[in-house]
Amino acid sequence: MVSENDTSEKSDTSEKKGRVASLARRRHRVTRSLLALPLGWLLLFFVIPVSLVVAYSVGILETFTKEEGVSLETWRIFLTGENVYMLLFIKSFRMALIVAVVVVILAYPIAYFLAMIADKYKYSLLLLMIAPFMTNFFMRVMAWKVLLGRQGVLNSFLIWSGLRDEGNPIEGLAFGEIPVMIVLGYVWIPFVMLPMFAAMISMDRRLLEAAADLGASRWRAFWKVTFPLSLPGVVASFFFVFIPTIGEFVVPKLVGGTKGYMFGSAIDDLFGMGLDWRTGSVLSLWLVMAVFVLALLFMRLVRFGRLAES
């Protein structure tokens, strides 16, 4: 599986050749044994579990006795929309798309500012932006749980200060779909800028000089050089948000209410309450497949974009 072909150390003398060859053999063996443990781990605790979900979704594997044998029935019911889950998926897909696009748009100027303008302060400012949020997902979600809601901090502040009448809170701040999206956006902004920041910081600045030498205006230089070069970072950022958002079930639980119920919440309930593992498996696989297809599609798009540029 693993074969070493290190060609960097060619030599004239046959004696040295032999030594190099034996060194290469030794390295080859070492490489293989280094990889054995991590690959074994991934096989046992990642590849096999995911395969077992596939097996479960078609009834090859069953952990409860009441189930109905090997068939594609559960898939058929889901795909033809006989149960609510397909509609729920479309809703969650839409929410994740909105959140990802908005967050990328909000984070792009920040990444640009840090990479191109902040100069020697860029890493300190970057740390300022992400440090508090690397610490605790719950802290961030909890803050909003406390802020939102009819009796939340925001509404109680408005009523206390007399800006709103008692018994007439702002309904938009009550739990539901919009709060779920606000909170998810809030949670991801600091992280989402990292791939874009990395793309911008590693770009060849001489291209911009060349553009200026050839008479390009600043805007033109930005649209023709900086922006296309940052696109891979933009795509990476998008998925950075989209993947966890479409599988989200914690935030809906906290600030979603019934209107904020998502596809992930359904999977959580199907397994967590032990209702129907088989349907849960189908939904889980569907989620993974959707993410994969979308990722492939976007990678294509970026590559086509680059081809069009050149």
Binding site: V50, L52, Y56, L61, G247, I267, D268, F271, S284, L287
Partner: peptide
């Protein structure tokens, strides 16, 4: 990285249970 944690959690649950 591209498998949502929720799905991975579910997969592990099925594995350990089975």
């Amino acid at each position: 990285l591209v498998v949502p944690h929720l799905v991975f959690g579910v997969a592990l649950l099925i594995t350990f249970r089975s």
